[in-house]
Amino acid sequence: MSNEFAKMKRLRIGLLAAILFSGVAGITAFRAMASGMFTHLGDADGFAWKILLAGLGFSAALISPLVLAVLASRQVEVEHRGNGWLLAAASGVTPGHLCRAKFASVGLLVATATVLQALVLIGFGLTVGITSPFPLEHWVGYTAAALVINLAVLAFHILLSAKIENQLVCMGIAVLGLFIGVFGSALPDWLSRLFPWGYYALAAPADYVGTDLVYLDLPYLSVVVLAVVGTALFLFITSRFDHQEL
């Protein structure tokens, strides 16, 4: 992993992770203010917290797919350009091992950004004076779900970027993923579950039902299945990479 962190310095991966954090948090806060959050700070039903959480779910689906794809693409593209796969193999590091190291290193930054998004928005809500009880269960539940989804999307794009040398193809697939994430609520649930980006819509933490903004039940079982199946597939595919000819 130390080699991957060294590569990050010149690839500006830290800057991209900062964009992931600030983009999601910033858009969420802006949407909340534009939605009249300041006039509902003391509502007993926690309307202001619901606005923030609903905005977080939307912003994550809007920003994360593309930024995660760029993170994966930049970290993997350097191997395609510099014949890094062969050089790593010559030193005893197989392509599959290299992909796992990339996921571990970039995934650490993604996990940090995901948790910070939630913490900063909670701090924002408290700072502007929300006085209704803080819905801890909903925030913790959504943050955990978002963490799993982001890491699943990152793992997918690392594998995709490793397999496809033309990174423009990977970016095109990421744009498709963005649309699935944002508009996935219009798709049948079974169809959304077939794509990692579809879980952004499935895990929407709050939304309007009629004229009421309400908390939504998070699909914890589906998210756990995504984590288990995603991990198994990632390990299986990277193990196949270990035996491929370079």
Rank of each mutant, 00 (worst) to 15 (best):
L108Y: 07
L108H: 09
L108I: 06
L109Q: 03
L109D: 02
L109A: 04
L109T: 01
V110S: 00
T112P: 01
A113D: 08
T114V: 08
T114Y: 02
T114K: 06
T114W: 01
A118P: 03
A118I: 02
A118V: 10
V120A: 14
V120P: 07
V120K: 06
L121I: 11
I122C: 08
I122T: 12
F124G: 11
F124K: 09
F124T: 05
G125F: 01
T127E: 05
T127R: 11
V128N: 12
G129H: 00
G129C: 04
I130Y: 01
T131Q: 04
T131C: 02
S132T: 12
F134V: 10
F134N: 11
F134I: 09
P135H: 13
P135D: 08
E137D: 14
E137K: 15
H138M: 06
H138A: 14
V140P: 03
G141A: 14
G141W: 02
G141E: 10
T143K: 08
A144C: 13
A145C: 12
A145L: 00
A146Y: 02
L147H: 08
L147K: 05
I149G: 08
I149C: 03
N150M: 12
L151P: 11
L151E: 06
A152V: 05
A152Q: 05
A152S: 08
V153I: 12
L154N: 14
L154T: 13
H157A: 04
L159V: 05
L159P: 09
L160N: 03
L160K: 05
S161M: 00
A162C: 12
A162W: 11
I164C: 03
I164Y: 03
I164E: 03
E165S: 12
E165W: 07
N166W: 00
N166A: 01
Q167I: 10
Q167P: 13
L168C: 00
L168R: 00
V169H: 02
C170D: 08
A174H: 07
V175A: 10
V175G: 06
L176V: 13
L176M: 14
G177N: 09
L178H: 00
F179T: 15
F179S: 13
I180T: 12
V182T: 14
F183P: 15
F183S: 15
S185L: 12
A186Q: 13
L187D: 11
L187N: 09
D189A: 15
L191D: 14
L191C: 08
R193E: 12
L194K: 14
F195V: 14
F195G: 05
Y199W: 11
Y199I: 07
Y200V: 07
Y200F: 15
Y200A: 13
A201E: 15
A201S: 15
A203Q: 05
A203C: 13
A203K: 08
A204L: 11
A204H: 09
P205S: 15
P205T: 12
P205K: 10
D207E: 04
V209E: 15
D212L: 13
D212E: 14
L213E: 00
L213W: 09
L213P: 00
Y215V: 02
Y215L: 07
D217A: 12
L218A: 05
L218Y: 02
P219R: 09
P219Y: 02
P219Q: 09
Y220H: 04
Y220F: 11
Y220S: 09
L221F: 02
L221M: 04
V223Q: 00
V223N: 00
V223Y: 01
V224D: 04
V224M: 03
V224A: 06
L226M: 10
L226Y: 07
L226Q: 14
L226A: 14
A227N: 01
A227S: 01
V228S: 05
